[in-house]
Design a protein around this nucleic acid. Structure first.
Length: 111
DNA sequence: ATTTTGACTTAAG
DNA sequence: GCTTAAGCCAAAA
């Protein structure tokens, strides 16, 4: 953006978060901590949640593919809340273990 | 600029 | 396994 070189991670945190979120493949999920790390701040898991809540484009950003640590489903601002979130993930092929996501096979590793 | 708040995480009881 | 406490970060008031 600004100059020819992108100067590493000079983008806003929110930008990095949303960008990363868009790259999450269908049928996979990531934890808030993972998103935070990918965005440049491994400890900003909280901020990530806030950004997701204030998510500008719920259609472009698959915020429902972001779950809490251990695969636990956390808040969701649309539909019927967590119920809708789980339904959506299940429909996309994400395996569930009770009320949590089966990270063993459905957690995405960006690498 | 300071305070408040929240879709988090980890550690401890 | 569940509840409580503390740490950390970014956006909104």
């Amino acid at each position: 953006m600004q100059n020819r070189i992108m100067l590493a991670t000079k983008t806003s945190f929110r930008d990095s978060v949303y960008d990363f979120a868009r790259t999450i493949p269908v049928g996979k999920v990531v934890t808030y901590g993972q998103v935070a790390q990918a965005a440049g701040n491994p400890r900003a898991a909280r901020a990530v949640g806030m950004l997701m809540r204030n998510n500008p484009d719920n259609t472009s950003v698959p915020c429902h593919r972001v779950v809490g640590a251990g695969g636990a489903l956390t808040g969701y601002a649309f539909g019927n809340g967590l119920s809708t979130k789980k339904a959506m993930l299940t429909k996309e092929g994400v395996l569930f273990k009770g009320d949590k996501v089966d990270l063993a096979s459905s957690q995405w590793d960006p690498r």
